[in-house]
Design a binder for these strands. Structure first.
Lengths: 419, 419
DNA sequence: GTCATTTAATTCAACCGTTGAACAAATTGG
DNA sequence: CCAATTTGTTCAACGGTTGAATTAAATGAC
């Protein structure tokens, strides 16, 4: 399947999978680094040799390269029991490369910096209504925010090695935003508009800018925040539309053209309300934010997305009957659609993110009820429905984390840099 | 994502992705063989070197190993225009390993042999009503049929190097058939019941028997019958239940427990007809074979699956109004569900297979209508809805083809065999 | 018919990076 | 104090790729 980091930007000059002499060391650098990243406590060279099947001599040489390249650092040896030379633990370096996550949404801009260890080192948010703003202006403001984040990273001794931009819409080939209805954007060539503002240092094999749908990057954020290993889950976020990030076996599934995740147009009532897609009875007409607001008696309030969600959460928390009923109905419709997806894709986890995260306490019970009822295997193997682990702007964090992940998965580009 | 060949059986003693000295040649054998398999005309060593990035010396050595191992053969050099040494084309050997595809269904057993080139060399079908038969007896009969196919393969100079068994149900860990309602099977340990009947020659890295859901193997059959390269599509087959094989980027997607593809329980009318899954309004109640038969006035006819499909096709071909209306309604319901899946997974092809293949002329128009109406991107990027390319017993052919694919993807196991 | 030219395939010494074994370092525990 | 144990480093050897040289097999000009 096409993973997010293959969708666009710099394509590696692949030799079609052939393993050349130089590939040996390249691949083993990645294998060892990945092991260090995934370990739940700092592994030693001997442990890495046992885990990978390489000899201690080879692991020692590979680790030397990783330390020299500031991707790995040695921890103090832990006291041991029994005879034997104490082992030096190895950890990801906290002062090497970092990823830059950016987000443009209807009412805010965000920039965050995530280091190799996954730690969010800086997170800058600017409130602004971006709907009346042209794409060029919006991106200019974003670049300014990115420059602030970059300066803060440099002060920390970090080097920004890749940027990801989350947008609320469909992203096509080459990072072009085909359609972002909430921003009023259509066919915006984002990389071209940012071309004269370098955001990060150039690193071979890492695209300088990755543009991706926000639901997809939020899902990546949840993936990277979770335990290591191949996870599969559906990350659902509800704004006007309802988007899903689909993570299968530890990788984001984007689809043939990068337009996967349109859960909002799964019909939950084939003869129901007409939808803007041309169909009728689509999920977003029942569980989209506009639908919930209308059912709660808040139609026409013209609230930005996360303000609307907060408002609904406040009302629900206060026990407003109309809001509670609206959320229950929305949860039921969402549950019907989600159950179909779980049956289809054999998933065991559903994450309520984005605009749904603050509403999760009220959405979750009816979703769980429909899922338990409709998923064939639910009796044997329950499906977990949980709110997102990441908080606000999880798309920006997810984006930064996925850029950092590319360094871990393919360290030679970084190691080849001068200095 | 977990590809079909990773689901069960022998697990390779992987060194967690580390590339050892011996891995170089192993991987390059696979790369070169894959290139030869994918080429649309026999490539030369020089062309393989250009395509893979390896030197001509290396390709020559690798090809020597593949020829010696009977995986590759040289074609006569084509006449060339202009000066220069004529190139020797290379092809997959038609007298080396082959895959054995088996199928148990309600009213027949099948065994087929597919060679490295993808050619079906033998295809044996036995009609029998297997519902009153115990699993042990059914598998004994299948083993006898497999032995016939094996004898025929041996006469051709082929060596059966792996078997795949298609069953109409859910398959769990280790090839255990958890549930096959149409056969009346529950928790049948198929590999154990066949353990004392070796079906194929042992080859390192290839499980002797792979048990898989029939929809999944049929989808693999369509995948391998299509052009090389990462295809994505939904293969839908309708018997009593409705199953889907989901192929994403050239690999079958099985899901966390191997139970993906349950499209039959996507609700198309959430307040509609009660379903045996506990939900209501599920697709199979509208487009499953029983539903179509009932709507056509054939309820209770107690026909086997493919006979029922043939009967419906006959009636529709004769213009029977009730049958035509039933198929139109079923097509509409199927279209609603399929449109949701296409939106969710961003697919561009839907294949009507299994019991739907003979009914495709009548099911396709309403499916196309709903898909065109409900898929967001249909105006820009039309979705292809087509009948399955493979004919009868596509699951057996798909199974055999996927075993052969494993040899191509990992030839060292075969090459290490004595002789 | 001969030979220059061109392209494919093979051979070869050199190199890269892994390898198994030997050795050095750093402890614990008797 | 020293044997035993475990980790980390060093080393000559090896497997397999490599770039260049050589051989093979044609075409086409003369």
């Amino acid at each position: 399947m096409t993973a997010v980091w293959q969708c666009q930007g710099v394509t590696s000059t692949s030799t079609a999978g052939a393993v050349r002499q130089g590939s040996l060391r390249e691949l083993n650098l990645a294998v060892v680094l990945r092991r260090i990243a995934a370990a739940d406590r700092p592994p030693s060279r001997a442990e890495l040799a046992a885990a990978t099947g390489l000899t201690r001599a080879t692991v020692s040489a590979v680790v030397d390269d990783l330390i020299a390249g500031r991707l790995v650092a040695e921890a103090d040896p832990a006291p041991r029991s029994g005879a034997g030379r104490p082992a030096r633990g190895l950890v990801l370096a906290a002062d090497g490369p970092a990823g830059l996550g950016l987000e443009i949404n209807v009412d805010y801009l965000a920039a965050c910096v995530v280091d190799l260890t996954g730690t969010v080192r800086h997170h800058l948010v600017r409130r602004a209504d971006l709907r009346p703003v042209s794409p060029a202006d919006a991106l200019a403001r974003l670049a300014a925010l990115a420059a602030e984040a970059r300066a803060a990273a440099v002060r920390d001794g970090l080097t920004l090695a890749g940027a990801a931009l989350a947008v609320p819409g469909l992203v096509g080939e080459g990072g072009r935003v085909r359609l972002a209805p909430n921003l009023g954007w259509r066919d915006v060539d984002v990389p071209a508009l940012l071309a004269d503002r370098p955001l990060v240092e150039p690193v071979a094999g890492i695209p300088p800018l990755l543009v991706e749908n926000e639901a997809n990057l939020a899902a990546l954020g949840e993936l990277h925040a979770g335990p290591p290993g191949p996870a599969s889950f559906l990350h659902v976020s509800g704004e006007i539309g309802i988007g899903a990030g689909i993570v299968l076996d530890g990788a984001l599934y984007r689809g043939a053209r990068g337009w996967s995740g349109e859960i909002g147009h799964i019909p939950v009532d084939p003869r129901g309300r007409p939808c803007r897609c041309g169909g009728q009875g689509c999920l977003e007409r029942y569980a989209g934010q506009e639908a919930i607001l209308a059912a709660a008696g808040l139609a026409g309030a013209d609230l930005p997305a996360d303000t609307a969600a907060a408002r609904l959460a406040d009302l629900a928390g206060a026990g407003d009957p109309a809001t509670l009923a609206a959320l229950a109905d929305a949860g039921t419709a969402l549950g019907v659609a989600v159950a179909g997806v779980v049956n289809l894709l054999d998933l065991d986890t559903v994450v309520l993110g984005g605009g749904y995260a603050p509403l999760a306490p009220w959405l979750r019970p009816p979703v769980v009820a429909e899922v338990s009822r409709r998923v064939l295997t639910a009796a044997w193997s329950p499906v977990t429905v949980r709110p997102a682990a990441l908080g606000a702007q999880s798309a920006a964090v997810g984006g930064a984390a996925s850029m950092v992940r590319r360094i871990v998965d393919q360290p030679v580009g970084w190691l080849a840099r001068p200095g």
